[in-house]
Design a protein around this nucleic acid. Structure first.
Length: 397
DNA sequence: GCGATCAGCT
DNA sequence: CACAGCTGATCGC
């Protein structure tokens, strides 16, 4: 759960993913993805009033997030005030104070965050330096190094601060099986069940949130079976998702939901209400996607766990693991990193302790003693930083 | 009637 | 296995 309060030190006149309290005064709003815990205040009467009298205030987000947001009637009043920004397209935005006329320009770039459809990170460049707000993200090891717009002149940009998704920033969550491993595990479980007979069906027990779509599309693609869902109008303009979904209950893979779904399932009933096909009872298993993690040295076990006669848990994560966070942040090597989330059982100070060694300042002072094996590399590091004109970044990052 | 908050549940 | 959000109770306007 994000505890980011909406504002960044460097650019306090913009608000991201929070729309209450201090954020009511923002000159521009940003939404990283369409999850409710990042939309606090976004439909409150106070912000609605602000919008009516401040006609130059806009909400910026990705095209997909705009589509998902405006599909909900509760947020449709934003229609004339949302500006979609293309992914990976640096875009200049004027931050104007409507009372004083004071103006500041920033360039924002949206980078894919891999959290849910439309989810992005925001890279801001302006007079107070370059900062990165990650929103919620899941990026595999090495993905930051493959993002062109994080780079300039062949090296990573000089980033002052990163506002980071630290959901799993705890060595306890050292590794989480990759998206591909998890997908393959679920795919083979579903395949092994539904190929037994046309009466064998699977219920994917997913939460009410965006983020499972790539699971549905991959299963559908691989198995040639559309996934039953309750609603799909939000995807009406996203054919790559839409074509893999159906509201026709006559399919072997279901991701429909109902408040009493667990109770239904015990009575061999799917959330959409069906129990049989052509008068023959269905044979049903449930698969609950949930996060599974492993310590640095603990043996990785199966990405599928059987939890009952007909029930399974399957590994699935919307967020980067500790090692993925380390890889990301140490590659960016900012001056500062601030946690957007405090994992349960940890404190702000503890999370900062984990982030500090991955940032720049901690690398500048050479330790008094170094293992002999590292001495040679130190020389090349010093040379690198001399060659990096005007950039005080130290290259152990 | 609506919103904010919290407990409980998943 | 810990994310995200729903439901329902309660309180205040």
């Amino acid at each position: 759960m994000s505890s980011f309060q909406g504002q960044m030190e460097e650019y306090p006149t913009i608000s991201i993913d929070r729309f209450d309290r201090e954020n009511l005064k923002a000159r521009a709003y940003f939404l990283s993805h369409c999850h409710k815990d990042h939309m606090k205040g976004l439909r409150a009467p106070s912000l609605k009033r602000r919008l009516e009298c401040s006609l130059k205030v806009f909400l910026y987000c990705s095209p997909v997030t705009k589509e998902l947001l405006l599909t909900s009637p509760k947020y449709r009043f934003w229609e004339k005030r949302v500006k979609a920004i293309e992914i990976e397209t640096p875009t200049q935005i004027a931050l104007v104070d409507e009372a004083s006329g004071e103006k500041e320009e920033v360039v924002v770039t949206l980078l894919p965050a891999g959290h849910c459809p439309g989810s992005v990170m925001f890279l801001f460049q302006g007079s107070n330096g370059t900062v990165l707000y990650t929103g919620d993200f899941r990026l595999a090891k090495g993905e930051a190094s493959r993002m062109e717009l994080l780079h300039s002149g062949g090296r990573v940009k000089d980033i002052q601060s990163v506002y980071l998704d630290t959901t799993f920033c705890d060595p306890r969550f050292y590794q989480i099986p990759s998206r591909e491993e998890c997908l393959k595990g679920i795919l083979e479980l579903v395949r092994s069940w539904i190929t037994r007979s046309p009466h064998h069906v699977v219920w994917l027990n997913c939460k009410a949130a965006y983020g499972y779509e790539y699971l549905f599309t991959n299963l559908s693609e691989e198995l040639g079976v559309q996934v039953h869902v309750d609603k799909m109008d939000m995807f009406r303009n996203m054919p790559d998702i839409l074509h893999h979904l159906t509201t026709d209950r006559n399919t072997q893979v279901h991701a429909c939901r109902h408040p009493k779904a667990e109770e239904y399932f015990q009575w061999n009933k799917l959330p959409c209400g069906i129990t049989s096909k052509n008068k023959a009872m269905l044979h049903t298993i449930s698969i609950k996607p949930s996060t599974m993690w492993f310590g640095e040295r603990t043996r990785k076990t199966n990405v599928i766990a059987r939890t009952g006669e007909s029930s399974y848990r399957a590994c699935f994560s919307f967020h980067s693991s500790y090692s993925e966070i380390k890889d990301f942040l140490s590659y960016i090597c900012p001056v500062n990193a601030y946690p957007n989330v405090i994992p349960i059982g940890l404190t702000v100070d503890k999370v900062m302790e984990f982030l500090k060694p991955l940032c720049r300042s901690s690398q500048s002072a050479e330790p008094r003693y170094k293992p002999l094996g590292k001495l040679k590399r130190t020389r090349t590091i010093l040379l690198d930083s001399v060659l990096e004109a005007g950039n005080p970044r130290t290259k152990d990052c």
